[in-house]
Simulated assay, not measured.
Amino acid sequence: MLTSPSSWMIWLIVATVVPPLLITLVSIYPVRRFAYQLGLVAHPGGHSTHVNATPLGGGIGIWLGILITFAAATLAIYLAQHDPSLRSRVPAPLLPYLEGASSRMGQLWSLLAAGSVLVILGVTDDRRGGVNPFFRLLVEFAVAAYVVYGLGFGLTAFIEIAWLTNLLSVIWIVGLINSFNMLDNMDGLSGGVAAIIAASMAIVMLTTPDPETNCPQVLVAALLLVVCGALLGFLWHNRPPAKIFMGDGGSYLVGFLVAVAMLMATFAGNDQPRPHAMLAPLCAMAVPLYDMITVLWIRIRQGRSPFIGDRSHFSHRLVELGLSRTQAVLTIYLVTGTCGLASILLTHVGVWQAMMVIGIVGCMLLLVIILESTQWQHNDE
Rank of each mutant, 00 (worst) to 15 (best):
L346V: 10
A261I: 12
Q377L: 12
W163N: 09
A144Y: 01
T69K: 06
V26K: 02
N379W: 09
V18K: 02
L86V: 07
R317F: 02
P275D: 00
L94K: 05
F307P: 03
Q377A: 12
P96C: 12
A221T: 08
I344F: 06
M278C: 09
A71T: 13
I177F: 07
V220C: 13
D187Q: 00
T207D: 07
W8Y: 15
F70E: 04
A35R: 04
R87N: 11
W109L: 04
Q37E: 11
I360R: 04
G65T: 02
D310H: 13
M278S: 12
L235V: 04
A142M: 07
R274I: 03
I344A: 00
V220D: 13
G255W: 02
A242D: 02
I120S: 05
Y97P: 15
V254W: 03
L367S: 13
V148K: 01
N379L: 13
P30N: 02
P273F: 01
L167F: 13
G100Q: 15
R317K: 12
I298E: 14
A157L: 15
W376M: 14
Y29N: 09
A284L: 09
N379F: 07
G61P: 08
P84L: 03
V117D: 00
F158L: 13
A198Y: 06
T331K: 13
W297F: 13
F256Q: 03
V18Y: 00
M262W: 08
M9G: 05
